[in-house]
Write a protein that binds this DNA or RNA. Structure first.
Lengths: 208, 208
DNA sequence: GTCTATAGTTGGATAGAC
DNA sequence: GTCTATCCAACTATAGAC
């Protein structure tokens, strides 16, 4: 109905596609379903995007724009000594509250690994996750008085893999307590990789 | 052409479906593609199976019939002290050599989580993995002189989640060395969960 | 048991009126 | 920019000849 600048129209359509994909799954996210969700005619989609793959690429990129903020928001709170565990626990709550979002993430990953038109998307996803984890670790480290015993990239890698494995199992078994327990274990092992830095461990000894 | 007993025909068709799904991905595994792969007419599939979902269920179950044997076969070899690490390393080799098989596993999991007709399949997959891990741990424990400090179910859970996370990352980044390193880390942390049993640790002290 | 032929859907994509 | 109408391909499933 309303005439919109193409940029806004694109955003609206990506949001609609994300809504359908989250709710109904990737397979049922058809051009028709997206158009219906957005309340526009089918032709509009092909006017704003060259083809379906372009929409799905936009959706995948939109998903990972979030994610990091959640973890960083929790960094500022709680006792530094248990900061890592605290943040990990908060993250578990976020995941549990947005199950279908995380299911969609896995659907997109798998789809990207098979579909030539989505090549590179899975690698982008992983790179974003690793960058997020790294940013988080570098933010939380000083705050908790930790310095990483191994390169921060390696810690980030382990964190991402551990979380993905735990979330995948949880998507299957719906065991919320199990997910919290698994992520708590991740938190502890991350914590174990950090050595307490002198300036913090020595009770802030006064300067001369 | 040849007239076969329906049981053999079913096996043949499942094998063909597995071949197509492994090679081309789940989305392109259509009834037509399966029929072509098996060299039979389209109607034959609907004679042997009620619908497509029944074939995919059979394929999913067929996949997990393997897997355990691989790990168990490696248990009998190597130095007991480094047995866990050795087996994990061997497993890495198996995974690397069958990338598309493991990709298909993830495709089936994700598909089962969305498709009502495949409900329960993902849970079955996970249960089988956990049972395999448990069987393996109970086989390797005594052999390496270990007794698990925590319930073996919990160890199995951690092993399965860690492996899944590592394999998923590897499916994306194709980093063979990274996968071997990640699985080696899994091996070490599993090893750390086992306490050395007295009879083995005490250099086989002679009985009176 | 096996085949051909076809029904009946649903999908992506486009042409052309407005 | 937006909509309707339509094309064409691919799919599952079935009916019925052989």
């Amino acid at each position: 109905m309303n005439r919109l600048p193409i940029e806004q129209r694109r955003d609206q359509l990506v949001a609609a596609a994300l809504a359908v994909a989250t709710r109904d799954g990737l397979e049922r996210t058809t051009m028709r379903a997206i158009a219906a969700e957005a309340g526009v005619a089918l032709g509009v989609l092909h006017y704003c995007f060259t083809d379906k793959a372009e929409i799905m690429r936009a959706v995948a990129r939109h998903i990972h724009t979030q994610g990091l903020n959640v973890a960083l928001a929790a960094v500022g709170t709680g006792d530094p000594g248990e900061l890592v565990e605290h943040v990990v626990a908060a993250y578990a709550g976020v995941v549990i509250g947005a199950r279908e979002q995380y299911l969609l993430q896995h659907e997109l990953t798998v789809a990207a690994l098979r579909d030539p038109e989505l090549t590179g998307l899975a690698a982008e996803q992983l790179a974003t996750k690793l960058a997020n984890a790294r940013t988080f670790l570098e933010a939380v480290g000083p705050r908790a008085g930790l310095v990483w015993a191994v390169p921060v990239e390696d810690v980030a890698r382990r964190v991402v893999q551990s979380i993905d494995g735990a979330v995948l199992a949880w998507l299957v078994d719906h065991d919320d307590r199990g997910l919290r327990a698994a992520l708590a274990t991740v938190g502890r092992s991350v914590r174990a990789l950090g050595q307490v830095h002198e300036r913090r461990s020595a009770e802030l000894s006064p300067l001369p």
